[in-house]
């Protein structure tokens, strides 16, 4: 998974504040945002695997479809 997968897209108001920070501070905050996104992504991936196991087997294919779109 590339680092871009965890990059967050901020609204214009929040983006303006982020862009106005000194470069070091901006980088630190962006890193924390990416870490938060990465953490959430990991939790979702694990939860999906576990949830599929808990679903009664006739429903499993439907559940997988829900997440594959």
């Amino acid at each position: 998974m590339s680092e871009d997968d965890n990059r967050l897209v901020l609204n214009s108001r929040a983006r303006a504040i982020l862009d106005g920070l000194p470069p070091d501070d901006r980088e630190r905050l962006e890193r924390l945002m990416e870490q938060a996104a990465a953490g959430q992504r990991r939790m979702l991936e694990t939860a999906l695997e576990d949830a599929v196991r808990m679903v009664p087997s006739p429903l499993r294919r439907r559940v997988q479809k829900l997440f594959l779109g």
Partner: peptide
């Protein structure tokens, strides 16, 4: 403003998964 922007961004980023679990 930063907090609200980050909250929304984190939510939107994974919204398809949240919706999937909600439908599940």
């Amino acid at each position: 403003t930063l907090r609200e922007g980050i909250t929304d961004a984190l939510f939107e980023k994974f919204r398809p998964s949240f919706s999937g679990f909600a439908r599940l």
